[in-house]
Design a protein around this nucleic acid. Structure first.
Lengths: 95, 95
DNA sequence: ACAATACTTAAGCATATGCTTAACCATCCA
DNA sequence: TGGATGGTTAAGCATATGCTTAAGTATTGT
């Protein structure tokens, strides 16, 4: 559904059709997406138009990015350590 | 739990403690994380050590990135259009 | 005004999720 | 060797999830 919305805004029934799902089902998905801030919807006349909120998508991306890179820095430090101290790992202390 | 693992590898019980959760509960989370490829675990002696797989984190990041940027390009095109055609939006055709 | 369209609300249901406890197995250490 | 430690398996349970259908409501076109 997010995939579909990244290709442009859509009405509720336009979202439902390729998913072969009833409208109420789609509505529920939309409600959680809207509550999470990932999607914004606006009703004009009798049709509700849905579009994604790229800013929220971006915070998700950033969250992952920060954690991934911080982890990769750790791996790099481990690499350095292993290069400096071949064999024999230090035993961990146990207070 | 992913948050915790990005700060370094951990044993099952080390993961359980701050979450105030039983070991079997943590085990089940680990199983889905491992099945999804986000985490790799290895048992040595009687302790199982868990670490995240940054490559998988990266594919998630990329998925979001591609969709977010493609959407933002669309917004840019809309901006251009609105700048060129002030007022009066085109009506959508209906075949 | 009437019928069709586009949602919405409410109720219900099958299955999945997210734990728990109890019992068990495999190391490790005194 | 025996008890503590770290994990695993199995069973069970409460609640959440992800739909469905049926019956509305509000707009729109004739």
């Amino acid at each position: 559904m997010v995939e579909r919305l990244t290709r442009g805004p859509a009405s509720v029934s336009a979202l439902a059709e390729p998913l072969r799902m009833s409208l109420p089902a789609v509505m529920q998905h939309l409600q959680v997406l809207e509550a999470s801030g990932l999607v914004r919807t606006e009703k004009v006349g009798r049709v509700r138009t849905c579009r994604i909120e790229p800013a929220t998508l971006r915070t998700a991306e950033e969250w992952i990015h920060e954690r991934r890179t911080s982890w990769e820095r750790q791996l790099d430090r481990l690499g350095e350590y292993l290069a400096e101290h071949p064999d024999q790992p230090e035993p961990r202390s146990k207070p």
